[in-house]
Amino acid sequence: MISTYRAVVLTRNGGLDALELRELPLEAPGPGQVRLRVRATGVGFTDIIMRRGYHPDAPKLPFTPGYEVVGDVEAIGPGVTGFTPGQRVAALTVHGGYAESIIRDAGEFIPVPEGLDDAEVTALILNYVTAYQMIHRVARLRAGQSALVTGAGGGVGTALLQLLRVAGVQAYGVDSPPKAGLVRELGATFIDSRERPFDEAVRKRLPEGVDVAFDGIGGDSIARCTRAVRRGGRLISYGFTSAVGRHGGGDNVGGLSGLLALFVGTRLLGRRPSVYGITQLYQKDPSLLREDLSQLFTLLAERRIQPLIAHRLPLLAGRAGQELLERGGIRGKIILLRDVPKKT
């Protein structure tokens, strides 16, 4: 009988060398819990922020990163009903995904319909639920309205563009020139982030401004988004990646200026600011994740959305995945898989 499993463990805050592959004891699930054999997990910038010590929802060190999982039910704890061994389920775990096994409360797991790809389902859990909830639960956008998306070629950015197209919303995607084709393929008007201030570019096309801006960058991007939004419109911030950076430590000044621009500057200019966090909303009402993920499963099955998978790596290659993400230029989501398709 197997008594251990392997996991990538974050041993300390720091660089990539803080991630270590370890063998850990395999435990039985307790009352109300389920143990999964992990099939897939994602690599996201949230994992990098946790590694550097800046994420508010990071657990106490040492821990295994991995914000979302898809896996097979392997063992069921006392008092658990509604699950069967081998059943495929998904969960928003926040941490724990870079591992062969994971245990969580049974209520966290959501059954996954047959016929859906593991990597694409994994991309839905964090990136697409984030995009879906911002569009429908925060902004409440309607067909015919307009929206601006910064970092449009990334994981959440591409999810936003696809879901805005489904909703009938005209999207403007801000990113660097190499991602222009991708942004246009997803139905958005491309805005070059390097050519000129993107708020000026938006206003040239839409003089009154967009109805909503979605920003995961922070810093100077907040002020530009504010100027790109019409008076009375909304700016939704879901991250401050510019304050952390891809390769170095935190930029406290940049982070503070971004917060001031969000909470003070937007209101002074007659815009409505919102801060979105998927974990905070999930903790407040877990049923919303279940509802929204079910809607996304349907859209995926109908191929009305198609998550962009940048890389499919082996399950325990979390360090390599984070290294790729830190290099930049990623289009879509990096997925770690138990069964990686062989190259032909």
Rank of each mutant, 00 (worst) to 15 (best):
E208K: 14
I191F: 08
V212I: 10
V210L: 11
E185W: 02
A213P: 06
G209N: 12
A188D: 01
R203A: 08
G209Q: 13
F198C: 10
S193F: 13
K204Q: 15
L186N: 01
D199V: 02
R196S: 13
D199Q: 13
E208M: 12
L186G: 01
R196P: 07
R205N: 04
L206W: 10
S193E: 13
E195V: 11
T189D: 11
P197S: 09
I191W: 07
R203Y: 04
V202G: 10
E200L: 14
D199H: 15
V212L: 05
V183L: 06
S193I: 01
D199E: 13
A201D: 14
D211T: 12
E200R: 15
L186P: 03
R203S: 08
L186M: 08
R184T: 14
L206Q: 13
V212H: 04
L186S: 01
S193M: 09
P197Y: 06
T189Q: 10
E208P: 05
P207M: 10
F190T: 06
V210I: 13
V183N: 03
G209I: 12
T189R: 13
S193G: 06
V212A: 09
F214R: 07
F198H: 07
A188G: 04
S193H: 14
R196T: 11
D192E: 08
E200Q: 15
R194V: 08
D199K: 00
L182W: 03
V183T: 03
R184H: 01
E185I: 00
E185D: 15
T189Y: 00
V202E: 09
P207W: 12
K204N: 09
